[in-house]
Design a binder for these strands. Structure first.
Lengths: 174, 174
DNA sequence: CGCTAATCATTAGTGCACTAATCATTCGAA
DNA sequence: TTCGAATGATTAGTGCACTAATGATTAGCG
């Protein structure tokens, strides 16, 4: 457990009225209470916990997410996948190349529109879904979470994601 | 509104209703309800929201975390920092090299123990803290979160991190 | 003592994730 | 119909994060 050390070293709150708030602001830079820090550590930790499980499928975690994506709909474009995963096409592109090398997908240009790439499950990629059905249950058990707790945390994360979206008074793109 | 839910571990409604659970398991592979997915997106989104703010300080987000670390205690070893940030020394090493190039820290071997590196704030690095004090407030406002919501979410993340730690019946390393 | 084992940091190599630039194709308006 | 703009994917370049291997130094035991 990192950071059981730092002594907060309370500073004298300035003579103003809101002693409580001043104190809180005083500590705003303490590493141990940064939400962004807890969030990144949680993300890395949870993804790390998936690793031994996904290793058995021959997938990394980002690759697993792409496969989830394709198990829901099979011929999909790069842009489609990138939007579903909230990532740049430039991130997805090399990832798909590795999944093709692994034999889980094929990549070919769409006939009638040569700009678009059709990403399609191979039989082997489709079959992998059978093994993958176990994953969520294994992970819930490994993390000691109930389905309800997962639902709650998921909702919190979605709220947080929504909070990071640009304000609605911005240029209405599209 | 964004964090109005982050309720702590609510009780597990252990439903013995097979129909309910079967349906739930049926949907376990839906991308849109994966906690790990929401978590990684939330992490990337929040870190991304910091970018314009940290750009003004000349820091990336991981570099910001290192600086938070050093503002709490100035001569620290690489291992010390890596444990505080829950990251590998191999990740911290090149990061520190960039912070040195930027002029925020110095790196020199400890006298009396040449294995250990002393990472120390430069005056410029120490002075940067003044500008950084604004960051948490700006980010809370930008995300539309109250101090209490931040505290709740932080607690949820810490619980999740704790859940990923190996069982206590494992070999007592160290 | 002296040599082995442990500790600390770095480098090498892989994979993600982003921005910016590039290339090909297709759309659309003059 | 033709040419410029838009679209779709990839490549280049930077930075993070991990594991494994390496090198350097110290600790500690026989």
């Amino acid at each position: 457990m990192p950071g059981a050390n730092g002594a907060p070293a309370s500073k004298a709150a300035q003579g103003s009225q809101a002693t409580q708030d001043s104190q809180a602001e005083q500590d705003d830079l303490l590493l141990e209470q940064q939400l962004c820090f807890a969030l990144t550590v949680a993300s890395r930790s949870v993804v790390g916990a998936y690793k031994p499980v996904l290793d058995r499928l021959g997938l990394t975690h980002p690759q697993y997410l792409v496969m989830l994506c394709l198990w829901e709909a099979s011929p999909r474009s790069v842009r489609d996948i990138s939007e579903a995963l909230a990532q740049e096409p430039a991130t997805i592109s090399p990832l798909l190349r590795r999944l093709e090398t692994a034999g889980f997908i094929t990549r070919q240009r769409m006939e009638g529109n040569e700009r678009t790439l059709e990403v399609r499950l191979t039989p082997r990629g489709a079959a992998l879904r059978e093994q993958a059905t176990e994953v969520p249950g294994i992970m819930m058990a490994r993390l000691g979470l109930t389905r309800e707790q997962v639902r709650q945390l998921h909702a919190s994360m979605m709220d947080l994601i929504a909070a990071t979206r640009p304000r609605t008074d911005d240029p209405p793109r599209r």
